[in-house]
């Protein structure tokens, strides 16, 4: 069994860099995307086990991406964790409605994020 694949999607390169580094250190195979369209394309190509999805992005926001992913039967097993700056419960609810499995509010601690990822997939 190979490494578990994670797709991290965020429009801010710095945080993307940070997340990529941490996850790689944990032993995941990390792919990145900078916007919604990009994310769908990469997901199609690499078939990740888990997607870290930022909500606020140019060209298709996180909710839209998540909704589109969930429409596809071949990606039913893919876990989705939403990352957002919005902390309101309403946002969280909306995320879960479109099919996200988990929700992480920025700013988050690396340990929290890793724990949530580990609970879903083993590296």
């Amino acid at each position: 069994m190979g490494k578990k694949k994670i797709l991290a999607v965020d429009d801010e390169p710095n945080i993307l860099m940070s997340i990529e580094f941490i996850l790689e250190m944990e032993g995941y195979e990390v792919h990145t995307a900078r916007d919604g369209e990009d994310a769908l394309e990469v997901a199609e190509r690499v078939r990740p086990d888990l997607i870290l999805l930022d909500v606020n992005m140019p060209r298709k926001d996180g909710y839209e991406v998540c909704r589109l992913l969930r429409e596809r039967a071949d990606m039913a097993g893919t876990k989705v964790i939403m990352l957002t700056a919005k902390g309101q419960t309403l946002e969280k609810k909306k995320g879960l409605e479109v099919g996200a499995d988990e929700y992480v509010t920025k700013p988050f601690s690396a340990e929290d994020l890793l724990e949530k990822i580990r609970a879903m997939i083993e590296p």
């Binding site: 801010e12 710095n14 945080i15 860099m17 940070s18 997340i19 580094f21 941490i22 700056a85 920025k106 700013p107 988050f108 601690s109 690396a110």
Partner: peptide, 10 residues
Amino acid sequence: VATSRSLVET
């Protein structure tokens, strides 16, 4: 803030 925190933690 989120980015900075993440960077510092890493």
